[in-house]
Simulated scan of single mutants.
Amino acid sequence: MPSHRYPCTGPVPTTGFGAFLEAELGAPRANLRAFAQELGERFEAPQLCLVNSGSSANLAAAMALGERLGVRPGEASGRPAVALSAGFTFPTTMSSLQTAGFRVELVDTEPGAFNLDPAALERAITPDTKLVCVTHFLGYPAALEAIVEIARAHDLLILQDGCETLDLRVPTAEGARPAHALGDLLTWSFYHPHHLSSFGGGAVVCPPGPEGERWRQLVESITHWGRACTCHYDPARCSAPAGMHHNFHYLRRGHNLEMSELNACFGRFGLRTWERDEARRKAHHATLSAALAGIEGVRVHPAPANSGSAFVFPLTLEAPRFSATAVAELCPRLDARGVEIRSLMGGVIQDQPAYAEVPDHGLERCRELARRSFFVGIHHTLEAGAVEAVASILREELSP
Results as ranks from 00 to 15, higher is better:
369 L>W: 03
358 V>M: 06
393 I>S: 03
366 C>F: 00
369 L>I: 06
361 H>F: 14
346 G>D: 01
365 R>A: 10
372 R>I: 13
355 Y>W: 06
371 R>G: 05
375 F>C: 07
361 H>R: 13
381 T>S: 12
340 E>I: 12
358 V>P: 00
371 R>V: 10
355 Y>C: 06
366 C>N: 04
367 R>W: 02
360 D>W: 04
353 P>M: 12
348 V>K: 01
367 R>D: 00
350 Q>A: 15
359 P>T: 09
365 R>Q: 14
358 V>Q: 04
348 V>L: 11
348 V>C: 14
383 E>S: 08
376 V>R: 10
394 L>Y: 09
362 G>M: 03
355 Y>M: 03
344 L>D: 01
345 M>S: 11
351 D>S: 13
394 L>E: 06
388 E>K: 12
363 L>K: 02
353 P>C: 13
351 D>N: 13
386 A>G: 11
360 D>A: 14
367 R>N: 03
355 Y>V: 02
380 H>P: 00
390 V>R: 05
386 A>L: 07
380 H>T: 08
344 L>N: 05
386 A>T: 08
378 I>R: 06
397 E>N: 08
375 F>P: 01
367 R>E: 02
338 G>R: 11
372 R>N: 09
377 G>K: 03
386 A>P: 01
382 L>C: 11
391 A>S: 05
341 I>D: 01
338 G>V: 13
396 E>C: 06
394 L>M: 12
368 E>P: 01
370 A>D: 01
357 E>N: 09
358 V>I: 15
391 A>D: 02
397 E>Q: 13
375 F>R: 00
392 S>L: 13
395 R>F: 05
391 A>L: 09
360 D>C: 14
389 A>I: 07
375 F>G: 01
384 A>D: 13
388 E>P: 02
367 R>A: 15
381 T>R: 10
386 A>Q: 15
370 A>W: 00
356 A>Q: 11
344 L>A: 02
394 L>W: 04
360 D>F: 07
373 S>K: 03
383 E>A: 15
344 L>V: 04
384 A>K: 15
370 A>E: 03
343 S>F: 03
353 P>G: 09
352 Q>S: 11
371 R>P: 00
371 R>E: 12
352 Q>R: 11
365 R>I: 07
375 F>N: 10
